[in-house]
Design a protein around this nucleic acid. Structure first.
Lengths: 145, 145
DNA sequence: GCTTTTTTGCAAATAATTTGCATATTTTTC
DNA sequence: GAAAAATATGCAAATTATTTGCAAAAAAGC
């Protein structure tokens, strides 16, 4: 298994190498799940990286353009960002309504069916967001409010 | 075909009958697609209804609780609301990335498949949001930026 | 009709995200 | 490797969606 380094990814995508940019990308690469801009910012702070929140936003924008990350917006109106392990890395999530824990779902390709159907309607460049909400096992058991 | 009136719906759900509440619900009932809180507010203004934007938000909240409407958040971070014709009226949308036109999709029940899969993971009360993005036929043809 | 409960309007608070601009850092060029 | 050109950053302020406190107004209950 090949380990891809943030630095070479940036170079590959023609992005200049700045301290914060590299750290933001790494935060996403090493995260076990999607992160909001604010969460990334806080991780950098904790690591002692001097970085501004707008810098985080601006870099996330760049990463989206370069297809390094994917994003989606939950019903709380906040966007989450996730490193794309490959250009066709596409998956969905389930969010626990109580503890907010988020789990990646490796769904089979039934969803392709949807996109086909939509292309037939005359749309092109079709993509989609699919997020699930529910209450996870441990919250159900612990009986939290 | 039965015509349901906003007023009787409110009564049925135990909601008091106020001028703006009825108008907000009607705006949703008569709309051909999902509306944001702000869009509803503007429709009321245009109709000459004296109504405040927070009133719109507060009523939408009520309608959600009473299962009169469904809501979802697009990638622009803005919530849209839609009247539920029946308690099991559940469907999805495709949004044109250029003209923002939104079309309802009457998808077959393949999606139930997903929810089953997730319940097996131990989640309960599972729901989901699924929205598509693409470029519609007329935008493709008109070659708008 | 009067009392209680609920809703509204308004202004202010929150929160996520974006932007302008001067400064700092990177990349490019020679 | 230094200077010039291009790009990125920090900071503060602007924007936008949404929420909230509170006093006044309207609706429901009796």
């Amino acid at each position: 298994m090949k380990i891809i380094k943030a630095l070479s990814l940036l170079k590959e995508k023609g992005l200049s190498n700045t301290g914060s940019r590299k750290r933001i990308l790494e935060a996403l690469m090493f995260s076990s799940g999607p992160l909001s801009a604010h969460e990334i910012y806080q991780r950098l702070l904790k690591e002692g990286v001097n970085c501004n929140e707008s810098t985080v936003y601006r870099n996330l924008q760049k990463f989206l353009e370069k297809d390094l990350v994917q994003s989606f917006t939950l019903n709380d109106g906040v966007s989450r960002f996730e490193f794309k392990k490959s250009s066709d890395d596409h998956h969905h999530h389930i969010v626990c309504l109580k503890c907010k824990m988020m789990k990646c779902l490796d769904l089979c390709k039934v969803e392709d069916y949807f996109e086909e159907m939509i292309k037939k309607l005359g749309f092109v460049s079709v993509s989609h967001n699919l997020e699930f909400y529910g209450v996870c096992k441990s919250c159900t058991n612990s009986g939290l409010k």
